[in-house]
Design a protein around this nucleic acid. Structure first.
Length: 295
DNA sequence: AAAGCGGGGTC
DNA sequence: GACCCAGCTTT
């Protein structure tokens, strides 16, 4: 049973969300579960505002899993364009194929069936279950994790993601009512994304400022080990992978290795990157060069 | 538990 | 510049 204070917390977030929610297109009423699934793939590690145009084009072109599954993976990779982490496009295409072959072309409703899809983890499975089907599950993303860390735990920085800890923590706050739970899941994420932001939280606009443990404690700074610093992107293999993929997307015939060599003078590095792309299924190598995968 | 994976926005 | 983003799979 939620404690009274938790009920108050959820009630305030839900009320705030009703008036403050951004009009993101995947929040429209009566969307298909497929539309929600596509949005969740695109939103992984990608800001919502940047996803909007990609999602609009994708849904216009492939309104059903069957529509996507009927085209080669190369087309999914081209439509993904520069959204980042192109493996997501590959996995979404694979998921669409699996939906057609094993689920009658529909997104399954159960958590276990969702988790079995490639590219669907603890967050995405619950987000689809909650937002597409209205089922009551705790949904915890990086925004929610930060809101809970600050408002409930009173610390500046959330612990690294851990389903074993995050889901029970959200479950304790989640209203019993289905619709209220849906609104709280979405509202907590929105609060973290627009008010309780990582850098400069806007506590003067926060609906739960009066309940916030971090605020009550005087905004204590983060203690303990810093988050692992992300490897430098400039000059990285990741950057080169992106550049190679860009060439492959633009070409409709295999790109000779000699042409790709213009991207990178160090042939050892180029070959390492090409091998990694092939290993990931993002590219296929043939005698006449490299191309996007057909299947 | 940690590494690796894009690319752009933000401060 | 460094940090962050509706995470995931692999090792």
């Amino acid at each position: 049973m939620p404690r009274p204070r938790d009920d108050d917390f959820a009630t305030r977030v839900v009320a705030w969300f009703a008036g403050a929610a951004r009009p993101l297109p995947w929040r429209a009423a009566d969307l298909s579960p497929w539309a929600v699934l596509v949005s969740e793939f695109m939103l992984q590690q990608t800001q919502a505002a940047r996803v909007v145009p990609f999602w609009e084009r994708w849904m216009a072109r492939w309104p059903t899993p069957a529509a996507l599954a009927s085209e080669p993976a190369a087309e999914a990779l081209r439509a993904w364009d520069r959204l980042g982490y192109p493996r997501r496009a590959l996995w979404l295409h694979a998921a669409a194929t699996e939906l057609v072959e094993r689920h009658g072309g529909e997104v399954p409703r159960g958590l276990d069936a969702l988790l079995a899809l490639k590219g669907v983890g603890p967050y995405t499975a619950r987000a689809v279950a909650a937002f597409a089907f209205g089922d009551r599950h705790p949904v915890v993303d990086t925004n929610t994790r930060r809101v809970i860390a600050r408002a409930i735990d009173g610390v500046a920085v959330a612990a690294p993601p851990s389903a074993a800890r995050d889901l029970p923590a959200m479950e304790r706050l989640l209203p019993a009512d289905r619709e209220a739970a849906h609104a709280f899941n979405a509202g907590a994420m929105e609060l973290g994304a627009t008010v309780c932001t990582a850098r400069t939280p806007r506590c003067d606009e926060c609906p739960v400022a009066a309940l916030c443990a971090w605020r009550a404690a005087g905004y204590p700074p983060h203690e303990g080990p810093r988050r692992r610093t992300q490897a430098r992107f400039e000059g990285s293999d990741r950057q080169l992978r992106g550049r190679v993929m860009r060439e492959l997307r633009a070409a409709h015939t295999p790109v000779p290795r000699g042409e790709l060599a213009a991207l990178e003078p160090d042939e050892t590095r180029l070959d390492r990157v090409l091998a990694s792309l092939v290993a990931d299924g993002l590219a296929v190598g043939a005698v006449d060069g490299y191309a996007l995968p057909h299947n």
